[in-house]
Design a protein around this nucleic acid. Structure first.
Lengths: 260, 260
DNA sequence: CGTAAGTTTGACTTACATCAAGTTTTGTGG
DNA sequence: CCACAAAACTTGATGTAAGTCAAACTTACG
C-alpha cells in the first residue's frame, strides 16, 4: 500500500496546494465545527467561547480514501489540517531516502505545524483508512488569534503539545529497548482512543507491522515477534490487527523498567 | 558532572520559579536585547521592527556556572528562556529513570516551549559552561503577540522550528546507524556555529562523550570509537573536545547513504 | 600535585536485523 | 460469491552492529 494521490472528483473543487489538485473538497457548510464529533478534543475549537468564529476558520473539508495523501513532503504551506474522522500517518524521509513514520494521527489531531517555519511541509500525510480532514488556512488562524486571546493561547498550547509529543517519541527511540517501545506504543494508543471515548483496552490497529516498526525504529519481523511474545505472556491478545490489552500494569512496568 | 542548583547570590534577586530561588538574576537594564550579541539570530527579537517592545519582554537575565540548572523537570512554567551566551543541555527522563539529552542549545536558542501546554517543564536544563540566559515571561510574549502581528508570526515560527528540529532528531534516532548519527550531529553543530558567525569547520565540543552518546542514543564507548575511526579515515581531526571537520563532503555522503 | 572525571581501546556478548520459507488475510475481477 | 493473486504476517536460522565489561591512559581541577 504505497501512497497514491487521491483522484480528483467533480465537486466544489478547490485545491489545497495550488497546482496539484489531488484533494477532493466537500461543501463549505458541511465543514462546520459545530457538527463535528471530535469537537470536544480538537484543539482547533475545543471549548471555544465563540463557536461561530472558529467555524469561520474551517474553509473546507477533504475526504480521502485509504492510501491517498493529504499533503506531500515539499508542498507549500498554506495552513494546518485537523483530522475529522479516520486516521493517517506522517512520513518523513531522510536525504538518503530512508523513511520513518513520525506520527500516527486520529480524530481531533492537528497536522502540519512543522511547516509554519519553513513554509513547506516536510512530511507526507497519508490516510490509513477512509478519512476526513478539515483545512485551516494559516492566515485565518493568525487573525483569529489576534482577535481572541483565548484562541491564541489554545493555538500556542497546540504547538507546544506537539513539541512534547515528539520529545516523548525521541525519548522512546533514544533510550528504550524493542519490547519497551512496543508496550509504550500500545499504551499511548489506548490512552488516545480512551480520550476520544473509545475503549481503552480493545482496538483495531490501522497500521501494518511494517508501519508500526517504522514508527518505533524496528523491523516488521521484530514487531511481529514481540506481538507473539506479549500474547504468549498474557500481556495482550492479538489476532492480526485486533488488539486487546490484558495486563496494563505489566505493560506499564515493562516500559518503566530500567534496562538494568 | 551532575546537575547542581546554582547557589543564590546577593543581587537584585528575583526567583524564576517561585519557591526555589536557585537562580541568580542580574540587573534589568543589562538584559536589553539591543545590547545582545545574539540579536540577529535570536527569534525572540531577530529583525523586530520595534526593539523597544521586545526589550520590555526580557524581565531579567540569569547567569549560570557550568553544571548549574536553569529549570528542573516538573518546575511550573512561567515563561521561555533565551540562551544569551554559552550553551546548555536539555535532559528528559523516562518514568523508569533513564535519561536522554533532548537537545543541545547555544546562543540565540529559545528553551522551554514544551511546557506551554502542560504548564510544567518536562526537562532539566543545565549549563555546559558558564552561560547567560534571558527570561521571557509568557504573558508578556502573548501580550506582545496580540499587539504585533509580526511578533506573533515570529513566535509561531519559533515553535514550529522546534517541532521540525525534534522531528529531525526523531528521524535520526529511528533510521540511522551509529556512524551516520555522529556525522549528522557534527554537521548540524557546524551549521549552527556557522549561523552564529563562528567557524563552521573547527569548534570545541562542550559535551562529554557520554552526553553526545545520550543525545544520539549511543553509548560513550561507541562515540569514542567513531571519533577515532573518523579521525583515521581523514574525515575529521579530533583531539579530546577539539574537533575540525576535514571532509564535509564525505561526512554528508555518509549521512545520506542508505544503510547496507 | 594528586585525585577524580573523562577518554581510549580491546575482548566478549547480545539484541535486533537479515534472510528465507511457509501461512494467513485482503482485495479484485470473473 | 468464489477464485486467485498480492499483500501482510509469522516463525526459524543465522549474522552483525552496538552494548557491556574491563583496564590503561589522559586531562581537568581543587
Amino acid at each position: 500500500m504505497s501512497a497514491v494521490p487521491a483522484r480528483v472528483v467533480a465537486m466544489p473543487l478547490r485545491t489545497v496546494n495550488g497546482s496539484q489538485p489531488y484533494l477532493r473538497a466537500v461543501t463549505r457548510r458541511a465543514a462546520a465545527c459545530s457538527t463535528c464529533k471530535s469537537m470536544a478534543f480538537c484543539l482547533a475549537c475545543g471549548g471555544a467561547t465563540d463557536p461561530a468564529a472558529v467555524d469561520a476558520l474551517v474553509t473546507q473539508r477533504v475526504r480521502l480514501h485509504k492510501g491517498e495523501s493529504l499533503v506531500r513532503s515539499g508542498d507549500t504551506f498554506t495552513g494546518l489540517f485537523a483530522v475529522r474522522s479516520g486516521s493517517c500517518k506522517s512520513v518523513v524521509t531522510t536525504p538518503g531516502g530512508q523513511e520513518q513514520i513520525a506520527g500516527y494521527h486520529i480524530a481531533g489531531d492537528i497536522l502540519g505545524a512543522e511547516a509554519i517555519y519553513t513554509h513547506a511541509h516536510d512530511c507526507t500525510v497519508t490516510a490509513l483508512e477512509d478519512s476526513e480532514f478539515c483545512v485551516l488556512p494559516f492566515e485565518r488562524m493568525e487573525a483569529l488569534a489576534r482577535h481572541s486571546a483565548e484562541f491564541q493561547h489554545k493555538f500556542n498550547a497546540l504547538l507546544s503539545r506537539e513539541i512534547g509529543r515528539e520529545r516523548r517519541v525521541m525519548l522512546m527511540l533514544g533510550t528504550m529497548r524493542a519490547e519497551q517501545r512496543l508496550a509504550a506504543f500500545l499504551l499511548d494508543l489506548a490512552d488516545r482512543y480512551h480520550a476520544r471515548g473509545y475503549s481503552s483496552s480493545e482496538f483495531v490497529l490501522r497500521m501494518t507491522r511494517e508501519e508500526i516498526g517504522s514508527h518505533l525504529g524496528l523491523k516488521l519481523e521484530t514487531v511481529s515477534r514481540l506481538f507473539s511474545r506479549f500474547h504468549q505472556e498474557g500481556l495482550i491478545q492479538v489476532q492480526g490487527r485486533d488488539v486487546k490489552l490484558l495486563d496494563r500494569v505489566a505493560l506499564t512496568q515493562l516500559v518503566d523498567a530500567t534496562l538494568q
